[in-house]
Design a protein around this nucleic acid. Structure first.
Lengths: 405, 405
DNA sequence: ATTAAATTAGCCATTATGGCAGATTTCATT
DNA sequence: AATGAAATCTGCCATAATGGCTAATTTAAT
């Protein structure tokens, strides 16, 4: 059994509450064992973080972890995505396309929102769970994969089974081991740690001064239900930090902002029309800041989707240019304002990575970039080929697949 | 000839109007025949939907459909994107790579906004259309591909030819078969179906109650010109649903919102900064709301463009290296990104930095982060303090200014 | 079939790292 | 002002890592 402190540190799981302690214990127990895991918990409780931790501390951690959000894949293509299909080649002439199960061979696949999977697909999931066998769409041949499955849901699967929306056999199969994540209300004592963590991360990466939260403000936050759990808390912390512009966060601020939060926050805030009944300049400015902040979150999502530059900025030609608004101090992500010499490392990584981490990632991704060509990778990174081979061995970062010319 | 109902159901083409009926007829006729198709119609009329339907019911439907928005690709890289390039032919071309025509071999390529293609590129398009032959950028070798081409434009190509902006030979080649999509004003009787469809989709996915549109409201909408066609109608439906907060949509609402529609809905109103500096009344508040709503739409447009604009998601899989255009296949790429280890280094740095560079930057910035505290920096980076001192000396990255505690 | 390029890993000299220690300085607390 | 803890800084030495070199093998292009 390995060190719980190390687990918590390396996995990024925050908290000292009993509930989270049980989760950590469960992770230490199930990680080394090649068994299916079902992670349950309300939306926003960190199911993916847990899945990642399990993979990280499993025997498969040098293999791939493939994360699939079953709820976000349209029904029409989900089987193709999961199991692959017989199609024209993408990377080579004549090769069929692999699905996620094939991609995750030897590794782990995380099926988030498993309760959203169509019934027809569930049959096939059960099969691959039990025997590792699957077939690509449009193909008769049975293929094999060796994948550890971690599934997650925020729904009551038993209820879905009763309703006929989920297969009982698959349900029993998945829930061999269940890790239940507590909601934020069930782990109130962890809120302090979350606040500090989110605040520091956000202020650090956005060049906002941070002066902390007043104790009574934190107390108020602990009394709130947080239907959106950790994710909602994160957004809330970030929001008030922006709105208060570097000042200490008081109970008044928290009270005001929490009472303005509606139970179901969607991508567009229906609170908007209610707030317009205020009439002061301050309220208007706050409203505008609030909305701009949410739009900023949307653009942040888009940035993430863009993967920091996989698409050149020129491909955005023709899009509306959003002008800075004079007189309104909106912090810009410092990634967009690159100081001289700070060019390679993400801002939010500073203070959060070992040199070894950097090295490993650099090697892995540069190898990818050069299609696993060792010579080119070594030259590009400024290390000897001999050393590269050793580090590939050390990090386990490249398959023994040959790549020539 | 196959079932028209099945076609309409599976393709998602909405409408019962004569115009749309003719389109469906045309699709049934051209789909099974390996012939080039030109899809014309105003912006927002659903040209891509038609292209997808044609592919779906063609003999090539088990092969790839590659969707390319020619208008969104910068002139400088369009030939590289379409035909591929030889490594080293320009900055960033780390390896040889295939273009869309090669990728779509045996399948279909949809060239949206074909009228935006540069003249020099048109020559090469004509060649690949006629003989299937093309050359990668920076390479002399002729390659072959077998691709069905569907092109689309909202421009009058004949006029472009007269102006010398489009090649006549390419034009004649493309317009062998033309599918002309009617504007929304030409198919007013389809507006009911669109409204219901958009309303249900939007309210369902955003947890908004839906109480329908009053008949006189719909009547008003049928009298509007809809310069932005179906796309504009969709945005309008969504907007009023949000502003009316689940109440039934009345003719007053429609009248108010339609008369408030600005001529260029995609532009950002620079007046906004001015407005925030004044006291506001209801009308101005409404204006603010509308501007903000349009901003939201802009971000939605960005998302759509990136996910579905240049390359269709169906081509996305098996990403083994970071390539600029493949970055557009965002959903799958982001799944790869959440793999363990892809967290610290900026994407555009890969292939462009030495390990020493990373190390130097990491040390420098982590020192900054810890206010020049050597002990904390060394611990954070996972190196000995002794080594840190040496590297500080080696890199010359810190002043001899003391910093304690 | 041929050839150049690439992969892979052993060997050994050189270089880098980390542990340790001690002198000195700085900071926070009382 | 006094005190103790924390931090800075650098020499020394054992160990670990790197890089140059080599050769056998494999792969891809022609």
């Amino acid at each position: 059994m390995f060190d719980m402190d190390r687990l918590q540190k390396q996995s990024g799981i925050i908290g000292t509450s009993v509930g989270i302690h049980q989760v950590l214990e469960m992770i230490t127990q199930v990680s080394p064992v090649d068994i299916s895991v079902l992670v349950t918990g309300e939306s926003g409780t960190g199911k993916e973080v847990v899945a990642k931790a399990i993979h990280q501390f499993s025997k498969r951690n040098n293999e791939e972890l493939v994360v699939v959000n079953c709820g976000a894949i349209p029904e029409g293509i989900i089987e193709s995505e999961l199991f692959g299909h017989k199609k024209g080649s993408f990377t080579g002439a004549g090769e069929d396309r692999k699905g996620y199960f094939e991609q995750a061979n030897k590794g782990t696949i995380f099926l988030d929102e498993i309760g959203e999977t169509p019934l027809e697909t569930q049959v096939k999931l059960l099969r691959v769970l039990e025997s590792g066998e699957f077939m690509r769409v449009g193909e008769a041949k049975t293929r094999k994969t060796d994948v550890r499955v971690i599934a997650a849901t925020n729904k009551n699967l038993a209820e879905l089974v009763n309703n006929g929306d989920f297969r009982q056999d698959l349900y029993f199969r998945l829930k061999t081991v269940t890790v239940k994540l507590p909601s934020l209300r069930e782990r109130v004592e962890d809120i302090n740690a979350f606040i500090e963590r989110f605040a520091l991360e956000f202020t650090r990466s956005n060049d906002i001064r941070y002066r902390g939260f007043m104790p009574d403000a934190v107390r108020l936050m602990k009394q709130y239900e947080w239907p959106g759990n950790v994710r909602e808390l994160k957004h809330f912390v970030e929001k008030v930090l922006v709105l208060e512009k570097g000042e200490r966060i008081t109970a008044d601020v928290v009270k005001r902002e929490l009472t303005d939060v509606l139970p179901h926050q969607t991508s567009f805030n229906p609170a908007l029309p209610i707030l317009v009944s205020k009439s002061t300049d301050k309220a208007e400015i706050d409203l505008i800041l609030r909305q701009l902040f949410m739009l900023k979150q949307d653009t942040e999502l888009i940035q993430k989707l863009l993967v920091g530059g996989a698409v050149t900025p020129t491909t955005a030609t023709g899009l509306t240019k959003i002008e800075p608004i004079e007189g309104v101090q909106i912090p810009q992500k410092s990634m967009e304002i690159v100081e001289d010499g700070y060019r390679f490392i993400r801002d939010d990584a500073i203070g959060d990575m070992l040199i070894k981490d950097l090295e490993k990632e650099a090697i892995k991704r540069t190898l990818n970039f050069f299609n696993n060509n060792r010579r080119k990778t070594a030259r590009s990174l400024g290390m000897s080929e001999r050393t590269l081979y050793r580090k590939i061995e050390e990090f386990g970062v490249a398959p023994k697949i040959k790549s020539r010319r």
